[in-house]
Design a protein around this nucleic acid. Structure first.
Length: 275
DNA sequence: CCTGAGCGA
């Protein structure tokens, strides 16, 4: 009746032992879904490295990880990085203390990092909402220096946002133009478009020597004022993409020389190189 | 004196 057949027990034991699937356990990477205390650091100077990040944030708590995101296409910092604390209060202290602070000569933005659920495999996702926000605000107010006099800010003449001091409508002679940057298109774009679509083929044949010095363009003593040295092009974090796209349309992917690299070498510059 | 604005192998 209530007797349990031993034969069944033996058979059942054997079944478990012979089940290879039962021995496997689903183990994920070191990072479990348990949210770590990661912070997104934005507004970093181009010359800021992961060491600089850690050195600036390890004082608020023990950092499990401190890394500056580098651009694989340029090899240079993308201007933001991530730091991971092992404690929540440390993260909170760091955010509250370093947000809007000046690091490496530039005002940085410190905020909670967005969780990437895919790991390395991440596609181009235009929507960051992901169905779950984590305090991330896409329409956040720009620190703009945080009003702490860090270096960012609005118009230096009238202090009104939406325009710059050079284009301040409050002082600009409104002769013919009442808008400033909003009126008509910029001639500078026409000039750029002209050399790409103007039909001039010698634009790179004889001008290439100027780009040969692209390694010293970042060799300036500063990361924000040393750009106007030999570049006719204004503010450009990396114009290599534009140039590569322009020449590829002409070359069709064929290189006529061994020096067809996108960049000669790492544009690493040391502000304290002792130069 | 400022257009960098951004979330990674």
């Amino acid at each position: 009746m209530t007797e349990v057949p031993r034969e069944g027990s033996v058979a059942n034991r054997d079944q478990i032992s012979s089940s290879p699937l039962s021995l496997f356990v689903l183990k994920k990477m070191s990072e479990d879904r348990d949210p770590e205390y990661r912070c997104f650091i934005g507004g970093l100077a181009w010359a800021t490295s992961d060491r600089g990040l850690r050195d600036a944030f390890e004082k608020y708590g023990h950092l499990l990880e401190a890394k500056v995101v580098l651009d694989k296409f340029s090899g240079r910092s993308r201007g933001f990085g991530f730091i991971t604390f092992d404690e929540k209060k440390a993260m909170d202290e760091a955010i509250a203390a370093m947000n809007g602070m000046d690091l490496d000569g530039r005002t940085i933005t410190v905020d909670k990092a967005q969780p990437h659920q895919g790991g390395a495999g991440r596609d181009h996702d235009g929507d960051r909402s992901r169905g779950g926000d984590r305090g991330y605000d896409r329409d956040r107010s720009r620190p703009s220096g945080g009003g702490r006099g860090g270096g960012g800010g609005d118009c230096f003449k009238c202090g009104k946002p939406g325009h710059f001091a050079r284009e301040c409508p409050s002082e600009s002679s409104r002769g013919g133009s009442g808008g400033g940057r909003y009126s008509s298109k910029d001639d500078r774009y026409d000039a750029k478009d002209d050399r790409y679509g103007g039909g001039k083929d010698d634009r790179y044949s004889g001008k290439e020597d100027r780009y040969s010095s692209r390694d010293d363009r970042y060799g300036g003593k500063d990361d924000r004022y040393g750009r106007d040295g030999g570049g006719r092009d204004r503010y450009g974090p990396d114009r290599s993409g534009e140039r590569a796209g322009g020449r590829s349309s002409r070359d069709g992917g064929s290189r006529g020389g061994p020096g067809g690299e996108r960049h000669s070498r790492a544009p690493y510059d040391r502000p304290r190189a002792g130069y």
